[in-house]
């Protein structure tokens, strides 16, 4: 099958599932339900694209297919912020900090964290990306330790409030925040779009890319920042989904055997929409909402990651 046909097929599948979500079992008094569902689906598509875009680019930058940008410690920053908020305000959390404040605070903190990391560790010649990652991971563990200490002290009832924000969920999307998130995401996409061909060069490695006239450092820095923004936005909107990126990128590489980012990125967006739709379908119709999509995705994504690790001959 040609690449074009594959893309068309994927789009059709996506559209089919989308229609199913919108229309299945629609009550007679349909306007309210229809609106609710539209928002949910729009949020799913947005998050899918954020994850797809950031993961493909991240894997290109790190020359590695088993990494995902969320391991840089973003999600533990997010969880820490949420924990601290609940810890400080207890049962008054929702009146003390409104959704919008929480959203932007989370994004700012995650970005601040990422930029600090880059500032100190990503310098022109000594740019060791793996070191950057490991430090991000260790800081992440530190934040997690802090979070879990606070969670230990938090009253179990208040913990339930926290639990809601610690698992990705599309069931309660704030429309206003959605528009903000969408605007930020589109901006990132546009900013990154012009450099897709530069990304193709990055896969040849730093030296070859420089030899071919690419400002390697500038390119990598630009995309690292874009990735951080995207991950921060999608995490702040729906919550953490760590292993989703690894799952969808690798499925995309399998399906589209190409190195061209102009194809890979849109293709991966489609694949991740499809995966999210399926995940949500399972949550709603198999588990009857008795699980969350992030738990399911991390479970499936995690298992797939294991298979990848064991299958790969030389990573």
């Amino acid at each position: 099958m040609s690449i074009k046909n594959k893309l068309i097929l994927l789009s059709l599948l996506c559209l089919g599932l989308l229609a199913f979500f919108l229309l299945f079992d629609l009550p007679t008094n349909w306007t309210y339900a229809f609106e609710k569902r539209s928002i949910k689906i729009a949020a799913m598509i947005m998050v899918a694209c954020c994850v797809a875009y950031s993961s493909v680019v991240f894997q290109t930058l790190t020359a590695n297919r088993i990494l995902t940008p969320s391991i840089m410690g973003f999600e533990s920053v997010y969880v820490l912020i949420q924990t601290v908020i609940v810890f400080l305000y207890g049962d008054k959390t929702f009146t003390a900090v409104n959704d919008k404040e929480n959203f932007f605070l989370s994004i700012l903190m995650m970005l601040g964290f990422a930029l600090l990391l880059f500032r100190f560790l990503f310098r022109k010649e000594k740019s060791n990306l793996y070191l950057l990652l490991l430090i991000g991971l260790v800081l992440g563990t530190l934040f997690r330790t802090l979070s879990s200490f606070l969670q230990l002290i938090i009253d179990p009832n208040e913990f339930l409030m926290l639990q809601g924000s610690m698992f990705a969920s599309f069931n309660s999307i704030n429309l206003e925040l959605f528009w903000y998130a969408l605007a930020i995401m589109l901006l990132c996409f546009v900013l990154g779009f012009r450099g897709f061909r530069n990304l193709d060069l990055v896969i040849l490695g730093r030296e070859n890319a420089i030899s071919l006239g690419l400002d390697y450092f500038k390119t990598v820095r630009l995309y690292l920042i874009l990735i951080s923004v995207l991950v921060a936005v999608s995490t702040a909107l729906v919550g953490p989904i760590t292993f989703f990126g690894i799952l969808v990128t690798n499925l995309t590489y399998e399906l589209f055997k190409t190195y061209k980012h102009a194809i890979l990125i849109p293709a991966c967006c489609l694949v991740s929409c499809l995966a999210l739709f399926c995940g949500q379908l399972v949550v709603e119709h198999v588990f009857n909402f008795n699980s969350t999509i992030s738990v399911i995705i991390n479970f499936v994504g995690g298992l797939y990651f294991m298979v990848l690790l064991l299958k790969v001959k030389k990573v």
């Binding site: 060069l201 896969i203 070859n208 030899s211 006239g213 055997k257």
Partner: peptide
């Protein structure tokens, strides 16, 4: 242009694709 030693690339890249990169500048 420079060609460094050790170029292992694990990508699905054909010879022609690779040579095409030479025209990037």
């Amino acid at each position: 242009s420079i060609l460094k030693q050790s170029n292992h690339i694990n990508l699905k890249l054909t010879v022609r694709d690779l040579v095409s990169f030479g025209r990037f500048p």
